[in-house]
Design a protein around this nucleic acid. Structure first.
Lengths: 189, 189
DNA sequence: CCTAAACAACCAACTAGTTGTTTGTTTGGT
DNA sequence: ACCAAACAAACAACTAGTTGGTTGTTTAGG
């Protein structure tokens, strides 16, 4: 158990996740991360390269985990919204990290992984619309973005100053999210 | 023009707004603020008390300005959504400041001013529902939060990793936002 | 099987620069 | 002459990143 590079890297990543999710890039402290991970600070620079690169590593890990944890189902958008809501509720770091990224990385733009993912989802919705399985009241892009907006509306770290309520109380709004998305995709009678 | 306390305070507030909106509380630099405002650094402490208090001053100014710039119309929620969208598009600092606040002030909770504002709006929606002017498919609270989620969905600094597009391109989505809110409040045929 | 060189993992201490905040003094208007 | 407004300079605390050396693990030669 003593000298395990992979285990050390993992401990650093875990501690970094908590630290970055709590304080963002500028607010995070390298010393705190290494202290929590019980690893010498210099290992961060040996394994990841630096503070910013460590944040990128944390971010990438979370993005890939989200993307293949919640499969996209263009034929069942309300169901997708519900599952995405569940995931974000169970992984509260995800949204905070994403929000920090959006605020503190205005230049970099969003990761290519996410970009292509959004592009693919949008294309899938557009195809479903052409097939008549989804209404064309809204464009595919709008529909996707609004779905995300509805899913994140109740969750903390949304820009909307919604009261920060406990996780079990948040869960009560899952049904409403699904209903709202259904209203968007069942437009008309 | 030289010795005007109010003018210096205003210059500091303006510079602080840009700085905090760009970098948040932890990332903001007091030196940059005073440099941009062309005011000695120590005046920040004389007039506001410190970095955090300066952020609060900036935040309060923006909140009150937003609240009495965009009147709430419970009978016309799509219209309200459109006007709110316009305001946030014209004042890009607003959403960034609000998001920084949410992320970096987890303890404080949201300002009471905002809290009561949300409470009042929610109550007004509930009353309109009882009067039969709005459907009761969703609770008043859900309806309000989803409206905010839809309005902010396309805007930058939303947690959703939506491509950062130019302001004039964003404006093209205004119509879609209004339509989406209309779908929520015109449930059924 | 043994041992010593080679290597990887790890650490304590240090550096150079930055940060928010304070203090003592100077200046300008009335 | 008075006092608020403004400033320059200094301070103590903190921060990301580095360095030289130490310790455990692997491996090659006998």
């Amino acid at each position: 158990m003593s000298r395990d590079a992979e285990a050390t890297k993992a401990r650093l990543l875990e501690a970094a996740t908590d630290e970055f999710a709590a304080h963002g890039i500028a607010g995070a402290r390298v010393d705190r991360i290494s202290a929590v991970a019980r690893v010498n600070k210099s290992m961060i620079y040996a394994y990841f390269g630096g503070k910013d690169a460590l944040f990128d590593a944390v971010m990438n890990a979370h993005v890939t985990r989200l993307l293949d944890s919640v499969p996209f189902t263009p034929a069942d958008l309300p169901g997708y919204a519900g599952r995405l809501f569940d995931y974000l509720l169970a992984n509260p770091h995800q949204l905070r990290l994403a929000t920090w990224y959006r605020l503190e990385r205005p230049v970099t733009g969003i990761p290519t992984e996410v970009r292509t993912s959004l592009f693919d989802k949008s294309a899938a919705i557009a195809q479903a619309q052409r097939a008549g399985m989804l209404p064309s009241t809204l464009t595919a892009e709008d529909l996707l973005v609004f779905l995300l907006g509805l899913v994140t509306a109740w969750l903390p770290s949304s820009p909307n100053a919604v009261p920060n309520i406990a996780a079990d109380q948040l869960a009560e709004h899952r049904g409403a999210v699904v209903v709202a998305v259904r209203l968007l995709v069942h437009s008309g009678p």
